[in-house]
Simulated assay, not measured.
Amino acid sequence: MTTTRRTWLWAVLALAVIVVVAAVGTYLGSPRPGGRMDANATGPDGAHALVTLLRDRGVEVVVADTVSDVAREARPDTLVLVAETQRIAGPDAGALLDRLAQVPGDLLLVAPDARARKALAPAIRSGPPRAFTAEPDCRMRAAERAGSVDLRTTATYAAEHGQPVRSCYEGALVRYHSGDRTVTVIGSASFMTNTDLARAGNAALAMNLAGARERLIWYAPQRIEGGKAGTATISDLIPSGVRWLVWQLCVALALAALWKGRRLGPLVAEPLPVVVRASETVEGLGRLYRSRRARDRAAAALRTATLRRLAPRLGLGPAPDPGILIAAVTQRIGGHPDLLWHTLFGPAPDSDDALVRLANALDDIERQVTHS
């Protein structure tokens, strides 16, 4: 295969990979519904499965995108489900929540934030969040039929100022009556999502709560409502397909580098431009130690070199135990073990003269071991 043909083959292969990645990125980056608690979303955090089950059961589900849609569709025989309340924000958030509080029908709050809870369910107060799977332990029909559920991490609630409130799942689900309206609050939204709907009794609890009336208004805003220009975050301003474009560019860059990059061959020995004698290296290192007053480093280097040469001459391994080494040297040349220990493993010298005496003592020990 010639070089030209091989180059064209790599170019065609790289072009094919880029086309495939671009097609996959275009498909994944195309606009599709998929927000959390979105009634039309089929992703893990969507609620399409629950909405489909409710409609199959005969419940009329009306999806509302705004508070105005909720107010227009609400009737006394309607259940209004309110979720994702953190998206009701901005200077008009208070007015929107007050408008929600005045719509007719029963109310089901799913994991409300503090502002929404105070406006829509003032008879309860929030407690610490926790994670658990528990039995209902209450006399609420919707919870008793569902049995044990998996709410993952959930907020808990209690009655405010002694209000009569029914509590289930250790406070994760509460219900009370306010005039003709029944207000139900549950501290977790995960049990209604497509991912967790099949866990334990989640599906039964979700259908019992959301299907309590024949008509359900599903309000889970997917955009910030109540804000003005300038309230969007940086992530809201970035188009959804940008990250796939970045991945495509990274893949294209990697293929270009693989195509044009030069492979590393074996190491080639090259002669040194200058030959430096060993004595000059030793003298230079000694001057450097002396200029920095590094007597401890110099002494450690001398002792390490001496021990490295003594060990094989004494029949010991490369890193012998200091006690064994001292015993072997004492048996070979005699001398007091404490003096040998001080010379071979003692503290660093405190002066240049002491360093010179240490070097001479090490040489003397090594010479006696060699000639013994």
Rank of each mutant, 00 (worst) to 15 (best):
T154A: 10
A123F: 11
V149G: 01
D113M: 11
A146D: 02
V242D: 11
T184I: 10
M140F: 09
R125V: 15
A198P: 05
D196G: 01
K118I: 05
P129R: 06
V174Y: 12
A210Q: 03
R166M: 11
Q222M: 10
I186H: 09
G241D: 15
P221K: 05
S235Y: 14
M192A: 02
D196L: 03
W218C: 01
E144S: 09
D98G: 15
Y157K: 02
Q163P: 04
P122R: 09
A155F: 15
A123T: 02
T156W: 13
S167K: 12
A111L: 01
V185K: 01
G171N: 12
L216R: 06
R130Y: 14
T195D: 08
L209H: 01
A204S: 08
E170W: 13
R117P: 12
S190Q: 13
H177Y: 01
I234W: 15
M207D: 04
T231D: 15
V165Q: 08
Q163R: 14
V110Y: 05
V165G: 09
G230P: 13
W218R: 08
Y157A: 00
A155K: 08
A142K: 00
A206K: 00
P239L: 13
A111K: 10
S167C: 06
A210P: 00
T156E: 04
P104L: 01
C138G: 07
H161C: 03
